[in-house]
Structures are given as C-alpha cells and as structure tokens.
Write a protein that binds this DNA or RNA. Sequence first.
DNA 1: ATGCTGACTATGT
DNA 2: TACATAGCCAGCA
Length: 116
Amino acid sequence: MSDESLDARLADVVASIPRGRVATYGQVAELAGAPRAARHVGRFLFHLPDGAGLPWHRVVNARGEIARAPSRRGSDVLQRELLREEGVRFDLNGRIDLADFRWDPGGAPARRRRSR
DNA sequence: ATGCTGACTATGT
DNA sequence: TACATAGCCAGCA
C-alpha cells in the first residue's frame, strides 16, 4: 500500500479534519504515516495552491498557535478569521485551546463544547 | 550520493 | 510563561 506519495496522503488527512476542529502538524504527519515529518506538513501546505479545496487553515502548531510562512504572509490573519467563523475560540494570547478543539480522529465524534 | 533548509516538536534554562 | 537549543524527516540543489 502507500502507493501514493506522502503529499497525497497529507492532502487526504487535511481534508478529513472536521469543521470547527484543528489538528497539529505532528498530528497530521502521524495520520499520514510519517510521525516525525511535522515539518514536511508545513512544506506541503506551503506548496498548496489557493484553490486546492483543502482546509489548510485547520492545521496549527503544537502550541495551538497559527504558524506563519515567509511568503504567505497575511495567511495567518486569514486563517484565524476562518477558524473563528467555524466556532474555534481564541484566547487573549491569540491561541487555541487544543484541549477542547484538537481533532480526535477515529475516536469518539468529538463532543461539541457548550459554546454553541 | 552529500548537505542545507524548513507553515515542526520536545526539552532545558 | 517565554526564549534558546537539539532532534527529526522529507524534499531539493
């Protein structure tokens, strides 16, 4: 198996992130079959075209913060706004509480916070 | 093949 | 809690 390239699997994983949830780079990498390739996830997203149709904004770093790219400057602002529209709440530090919004794949259907 | 880079993560101070 | 350093792995020159 794994005939497809890692990028193809990364795309599949990112596309699987449910709305209103976020996943860390390491998490996506692990699900794609490369537990230590968190950095590669960033590279993959960087190469990702605008019309890829992938929820790239749902991928954040392990601290629950939005990573910033040298060339994609401004994407961090857009990302934060998109997430906020999906119901993701940011704290005063501009960070996401991963304890509540981190995507739990395969497991339970992730109960929704009573933020409503 | 060898070496550098990087939208990262974990650990130490 | 924030900043600094080391380790990782896959892509690219």
